[in-house]
Design a protein around this nucleic acid. Structure first.
Lengths: 194, 194
DNA sequence: TCTTTGATTGACTAATCACTCCACAAAGTA
DNA sequence: TACTTTGTGGAGTGATTAGTCAATCAAAGA
């Protein structure tokens, strides 16, 4: 048990160090030796846990996205109305990003990059269904505007990214609930029927 | 004169090749030798035109953004109403991206990346003023919603990126004017006062 | 024709990097 | 204890890369 936790410790220290360095310097200009160094392990140890640098990156991307999904969707099913569901999802997403800026920046930086192998992207994209369902139900109930589901998905996710990036640049508003609520109202107004 | 145009030819061939390779493989996994090869020039020639690989990238980024700005803002001043200005800007932007997908992907991929030097970003960000003015005037005339200018800027630009990325994935709609107009209506509805 | 200037080349170099290898340590198992 | 499995370290290796350099080449003026 103790040894088990120590193993997890090194593994996760490597992942943590990698993310920090990747976000600051980019994927290809971060040598594995620097990651090992930052994590406080030897170079060879890194390759004990991850066969290749690419698999380290893929693992990091996948685990970060999983974490993102499970945290942001928590409690959404339990909400009764579409608006409450959407609001919770919105706040969960914004707060997740603000609490873990490195994670968010990592995803943003690499989700469209050519470095992530196709395989990993496919595995992650399963989660689309959750959002698509929510939009479809909203449209059926005539709560949400009647535009194609996947267009709605794109428009809304990008809008949320916009808010988050804005808040990164204006950290003084990050804990301003009035501000957050204004941004959400804008968001809701743009997607809901009048 | 002829030699001058030939010079420009090689320089621009290098830039063109670099962009193509960067978008497909990323910045750091594209060797300068591959760029030179793709451009049909010798390795040394590349370094004759660009002192370093980084300066090549910065030049490429800067020129692409300049081109983006001059094309997307063309004719906007001449329009009379805010809505017409915004519509033209929106359509210009979407069409620019659809006509030059490599340029758009290049900007998207690298504008947030740690590879672009701070200097370059600053030089490019002068253009913010144009957009900020437009939003401010729209708010004064009570045409646009009264939310902070820079928040509005973030929300709207990201929403446009969302449309563009959507259209990249659904090329069948790229020339569907009805579809584009629906997306613009959504956009306008989200930013304008009722 | 001679000279100058700048473009062009590609072999070369010094540095860097992903990854291997092997020795050793620690822990588990009998 | 003896044997096995698993973790850990870090020097070493072969491949790759950004950037250099000395040598040609082409054009244009005098």
């Amino acid at each position: 048990m103790i040894s088990q936790s120590k193993i997890e410790d090194k593994r996760s220290r490597i992942l943590l160090a990698a993310r920090r360095l990747f976000v600051n310097q980019g994927f290809h200009s971060t040598p594995t030796s620097a990651i090992a160094n930052e994590a406080g392990v030897a170079n060879g140890t890194l390759f004990h846990y991850f066969k290749t640098k690419e698999s380290l990156i893929n693992t990091l991307y996948k685990e970060t996205k999983e974490n993102f999904f499970s945290i942001t969707t928590a409690g959404v099913e339990e909400e009764k109305t579409i608006k409450r569901k959407v609001r919770l999802l919105w706040y969960n997403t914004v707060k997740w990003a603000l609490n873990r800026p490195m994670d968010f920046l990592f995803i943003q930086q690499f989700s469209n990059s050519p470095f992530i192998s196709k395989l990993t992207q496919d595995e992650v994209s399963e989660h689309f269904e959750f959002y698509y369902n929510l939009i479809d139900i909203g449209k059926e109930k005539e709560t949400l505007k009647d535009i194609p589901t996947d267009l709605m998905y794109h428009l809304t996710t990008y809008q949320i990214y916009g808010v988050i990036n804005y808040l990164f640049q204006h950290s003084e508003f990050q804990k301003n609930t009035e501000y957050l609520s204004m941004a959400f109202d804008f968001y809701w107004d743009s997607i809901s029927k009048k």
